[in-house]
Amino acid sequence: MASKSIKIRAKFKDGVTTVKALLTHQMESGFRKDSKAGGMVPAHYIQEVVCEVGGKMVMNAHWSGGVSKNPYLSFKFDGGEGEKLKLTWTDNKGETDSAEEAIG
């Protein structure tokens, strides 16, 4: 499944899978002044990232707009060899994207 906004690297070594993911998102916190229009730039950020392996959830992240633009995240779990990993994000406007990657 091709995703425009998600890049995943999932490597299995010595019984542990290390996931590194890069998401494309503006992560507008809502605390930034709009120099042109005045006022604040409206908040627009990823609120939730879910990772499932073989249909089972291993990681569920909740974020604020304090996570940097084009977020990076990394986590590890036991096992995962030869399985498929699915990563899904959802933002505060309800937009969502998802990607799958075979653990290598």
């Binding site: 291993v58 990681m59 992240a61 974020w63 996570v67 940097s68 990394s74 986590f75």
Partner: peptide
């Protein structure tokens, strides 16, 4: 907004999380 990120870890996930914050 002081709270930046929270990672719920389950199903064999390690006590490990890495990200970038403002």
């Amino acid at each position: 907004a002081p709270l930046v990120a929270s990672f719920d870890l389950m199903g064999g996930a390690h006590g490990y999380a890495s990200t970038r914050i403002k």
